[in-house]
Design a protein around this nucleic acid. Structure first.
Lengths: 117, 117
DNA sequence: AATATGTACTTAGTTATACTAAGTATGAAA
DNA sequence: TTTCATACTTAGTATAACTAAGTACATATT
């Protein structure tokens, strides 16, 4: 079980990571869950109830688009998501901000304790 | 004005940064606002309505403790916060997690697009 | 003198996002 | 036949940062 601190750190980042996965090629929701788990370990082992609403939100914002596949015999239907041009731009923006953000915070954590001078 | 993405990224981190500032020496709320702004720029220019509730929460969790200063002549009273032993431990934990978290995410962002193989 | 600005703290209510927990439906394995 | 893995949906909750408003006092500006 993740600590509350870990849950909070993930805010915002999940959207960026989903866009990043879709940058490669189109994927369906459950596949994204598996790949996030594979790449991110426990920290990014999402329940369906976490991932799917992210996808709906991204689609609402036109950052991704989806299409259902006609299921072949003995296959469940899947909803494939792909990144849009707008989504690609947004992803690049978010990665830039992520770099600035983490460098800023890491810098602030390095400020040393003042000794007597 | 910060983007929504930036607001979300800050979740969790502010608590850690406040603890970090208090690690050096005790400080009062308004002073913390000024130092965060100085070190963190626009990204960490907090309104009072953002900072003070963080301090109250930290105190509730016994990670910091506070004392009012008796105001000398022509001085407003200030509430000084200092970190507790528990707060110091929590800070170290959070910094460890922060490092793991950022390395994980940055690694996931570096996964290259698959070309044809 | 009146107004604005900076210091210093408080609090009510809003927004955004991840969470839990439950549900639907199918196919394969025990 | 019961469990498990796949695959998607949705209602409700928790958390944390936000806006916006307020109090109070001292200093600076007009």
């Amino acid at each position: 079980m993740l600590s509350n601190y870990e849950k909070q750190l993930k805010k915002g980042v999940l959207e960026m990571l989903v866009l990043k996965l879709l940058e490669r090629d189109e994927k369906y929701g459950y596949q994204i869950i598996l790949e996030l788990r594979e790449q991110g370990g426990e920290l990014f082992s999402l329940k369906e109830g976490t991932l799917y609403p992210i996808l709906y939100r991204l689609e609402e914002e036109n950052l991704v688009k989806s299409k259902w596949t006609a299921p072949k015999e003995k296959e469940t239907a899947r909803k494939y998501y792909s990144i849009t041009g707008e989504g690609q731009k947004e992803l690049e923006q978010q990665i830039l901000l992520w770099d600035i953000f983490t460098r800023t915070v890491t810098g602030m954590l390095k400020e040393e304790k003042h000794g007597a001078e």
